[in-house]
Amino acid sequence: MATILNPELVAPPQSRPARGVSVLLEDVSIALGGRTVLKNFHVEIAAGEFVAIVGRSGCGKSTLLRSIIGLETPQAGRIAVGESVDRNGKPDIRIMFQDSRLLPWKRILPNVTLGLATSFIPEAKRVLDQVGLADRARDWPATLSGGQRQRVALARALVHDPALLLLDEPLGALDALTRIEMQQLIEAVWTNRGFTAVLVTHDVAEAITLADRVVLIEGGRVALDEVVNMPRPRTRGSAKFAALEEKILSRVLNVAQRNIEGRPFLETRSRDAQ
């Protein structure tokens, strides 16, 4: 993982390359299995922007990513990815799924280069090294731990150099230290390549560390859309950071509180509290 300290990666170039594409979700409604997941959901993401999506489990974060890449079709509304940048019709979108989805019958390195020409092997090895798994290149996925598989899936997504990268809780199974290293890696790659990134996370601090904007989903809509106006690299220590984290968390809790009070079987308790 020494590569993360590579000066080329840590010090970002003055201006990022214009690789990214914009994303527009216009009043998108999606129902799954008869239940409305997203309702008149509206969000605009600029080309090259880094947006973090937060929200409680089951609020539709994965569904949002899946609809952007076309795995779910909205019942209403419009989804547009990179209207201006049109490379052979479809812009390059890659998604890192919440479950790592490695092919069990391919060794780690071929998993990372899936769908790519053999000329990508050196690059794949480099990224594998960055996620700290260079020595596992020849192993089967079944022999890796959950967090290691996640890192391979992250490497696979990064190698493709997409115009839009969707990350669905990419660091969910990692310990605090590895998590920070991977955050730095994602930030460095994003800074150097200039793609648009949408990161789903349940960790508000992670969202604030990495994103230009934090979007909170609640009840199928955008409940909060906060611009993070802090210089990178960000550290958790600053007062501004803490204030923003507090603001987003209290908003999540507020909604949760209202939900609890709305429940009939908790009525007596909330009355006691008054």
Partner: peptide
């Protein structure tokens, strides 16, 4: 899930068959 993943990683037709369906 693997089929979905393969498609989003640019596999289709014979390659999807060889890399994912057959194995």
């Amino acid at each position: 899930g693997l089929l979905e993943m393969g498609r989003t990683y640019g596999l289709s037709g014979w390659r999807l068959y060889r890399e994912i369906i057959l194995p």
